[in-house]
Design a binder for these strands. Structure first.
Length: 295
DNA sequence: AACCACACCAACCGCGGCGCA
DNA sequence: CTGCGCCGCGGTTGGTGTGGT
């Protein structure tokens, strides 16, 4: 049902993703986070373009992606939002936890479109029409306010906190970005995404084979230790010693110092609840080739 | 059984927005 | 202001599945 694998003139693979590629992408992101989609495939040992990796991660590999049939409630939400906002699939996705914009878009075209043929839209009082040079959309007044939050959140979550601040967003960042979708924070005054990410303890392990660092969330404005993309190659010396992430010796960050590193995986709002056991297991089980992934 | 048409959906593509130098 | 690089969004494509004839 997917396009046949092919390789373009630049050596970039296209088409269906193999399990091995999925494993590589998943493992790399779980360990190092998303810091630059364009660079990521090179370091992850994937002959894919960044866009393809991003799409694969976002629509298929992300842990919270929900598969299976849409419920009646989900259908109603899609129909209502479509009436109000038009084809804002990404906004729909934020209102349907676990559903991706691509999946919603497909579902609309294959199931829902035929049910709502060309009706005249009656604008509720809380909806305004937004016109641009290329299209006209209906946007609720709440959504306009929401959108500023969404843009903020999206920028951070989709890139693993890598745009607002320059960080390679090691494991915990991707964990947090996967786990904290907008709805859970919309009503929280303690907005995690408003907080700066701070490296609590990080050593540049120059020349060594292992790095130790941990991230935390803090209101502290001291972010002088934030790593840049260049630091990524420094902190992870394997980039200099090995061709790619995949050829370096695999050792999870969690195996050496379980107590300290597990702190990375705590819910920043409710610190007593760990949130990333399954992600931990993914990385850990990779060392056991006989069992494969444990999801 | 063979053929056909349509449904489905993962993946691709192009464009626009944004940040930065 | 301009150009560039990166990213996200929405539209489209194309291979496979499925049901009807």
């Amino acid at each position: 049902m997917v396009r046949a694998p092919s390789i373009d003139k630049n050596g970039i693979k296209k088409g269906e993703w193999s399990k091995e590629e999925d494993d590589k992408l998943r493992t790399y992101i779980n360990r190092y986070g998303i810091w630059n989609w364009r660079q990521l495939p090179k370091y992850a040992g994937l002959a894919r373009c960044g866009k393809s990796c991003r799409l694969r991660w976002k629509n298929y590999l992300q842990p919270n992606v929900k598969r299976g049939n849409f419920t009646k409630e989900e259908e109603d939400i899609i129909i209502n939002l479509h009436n109000q906002l038009g084809k804002k699939w990404s906004i729909f996705a934020k209102n349907l936890p676990g559903r991706t914009d691509n999946e919603i878009k497909n579902y609309w075209h294959t199931h829902l479109k035929k049910r709502t043929p060309g009706q005249n839209q009656i604008l509720p009082s809380n909806v305004v029409k937004v016109e641009s040079s290329c299209q006209t959309s209906l946007v609720s007044k709440e959504e306009i306010n929401q959108e500023s939050f969404d843009n903020n959140h999206q920028q951070i979550s989709d890139t693993g906190l890598s745009q607002g601040i320059t960080s390679p967003s090691i494991s915990c960042c991707s964990v947090l970005s996967q786990s904290y979708d907008a709805p859970s924070y919309q009503e929280s005054s303690a907005n995690f995404w408003n907080q700066q990410l701070m490296i609590e303890d990080y050593e540049l392990a120059q020349g060594s084979s292992c790095s130790e660092f941990s991230f935390g969330c803090s209101d502290d404005s001291n972010i002088s230790n934030l790593m840049t993309a260049e630091d990524h190659a420094t902190v992870i010396p394997s980039y200099e010693c090995f061709d790619d992430f995949w050829s370096q010796p695999f050792e999870t960050d969690y195996m050496n110092n379980s107590h300290k590193d597990r702190q990375l995986l705590l819910d920043p709002v409710n610190p007593s609840s760990p949130i990333a056991d399954e992600v931990f297991l993914w990385s850990y089980d990779l060392s056991d080739e006989s069992t494969g992934w444990n999801i």
